[in-house]
Design a protein around this nucleic acid. Structure first.
Lengths: 160, 160
DNA sequence: TCCGAAATTGGTATGATCTGCCAAAATCAG
DNA sequence: CTGATTTTGGCAGATCATACCAATTTCGGA
């Protein structure tokens, strides 16, 4: 999956589609100063090369009663590769884990878990996280409020 | 902005659009067992009531050279409301801050900052974060790898 | 149980949009 | 300057979104 260099127009397209993934190609082409045909071709190329991973709808967590975010620091017993892979394989199977990062420092992993309430989080700990072999320590921090949640990568600063 | 109750079909629509925000309404209607007309009407209603916040394209961070995620724990001097508001107002103006949460426990805020490299993160600290009045302490943790990044809220478990 | 109002659904016609092609223009190397 | 490659713009056919209307279903009150 080669990722060729992106010129000014490509980055402009990405910036706009990051804000509105359903923007009509006719609108998009106007904003980037192209006619619809080459604009659509660039978008398709960005999709096929994997620069654009996918398009999604963002849902209000409160509207579906999923407004509790928990950040979980997980330390494994020993950082042998096998253990890491097993943990990561488990993580991707749990839909409650929206994000997971392998971290520097003392904690090995940082997870963001989304649940409807604390009871559901307890169930997640008991039924899933603590059952993975090799988990040495778990530290939970709760988010009181989502001040900002943005999916758009900051492309502005590298505008030619 | 009232958020009326969502039935099985609505949640099904949300689950599908969270996976593919550009799915054609004709496809969507088939999958949820409806004809195109009422299906589109439901989608529009979900948009207008704010259940669907927006549609976005997700971009591969590596393809645009933004593969460094830094988690920043920020403590303010005193948690007076005025200070919190000022900090939050600053945060939403910085495009590098993709996420920001008000946390329980010792640290007041947890931020996820996305930058191209460590030098850019240094600049972010020096030029922006440390200049906000009231910031008492800053602790940075670096992500070595993004194991999982999902934007779809887990709706499966509440399927009727 | 029955009735009637309200909400939801399915179908259709219209307009907009996407898509694949071809020629023209621009870009680049030699 | 020339020729090849890449990118662009416009056009035609197909697909899709949208706005209506009639038919069906749902639900509360009698």
């Amino acid at each position: 999956m080669p990722k060729p260099d992106l010129d000014r127009i490509d980055r402009n397209i990405l910036a706009l589609l990051q804000q509105d993934g359903r923007m009509a190609n006719s609108d998009l082409s106007q904003r980037v100063g192209l006619s619809p045909s080459p604009c659509l071709r660039r978008v398709k190329a960005l999709e096929e090369t994997g620069v654009i991973r996918n398009y999604v709808a963002l849902v209000d967590p409160a509207a579906v009663d999923l407004s509790v975010s928990v950040f979980v620091s997980v330390t494994l017993e020993r950082q042998v590769e096998e253990r890491l892979d097993a943990f990561e394989a488990a993580v991707v199977r749990w839909p409650e884990v929206l994000e997971c990062y392998l971290m520097t420092g003392e904690a090995d992993y940082l997870l963001r878990v989304v649940v409807p309430d604390l009871a559901a989080y307890e169930r997640f700990l008991k039924d899933h996280l603590t059952r993975v072999p090799g988990v040495a320590s778990i530290k939970s921090s709760f988010a009181l409020k989502q001040v900002r949640y943005n999916t758009a990568l900051p492309l502005g600063h590298l505008a030619d």
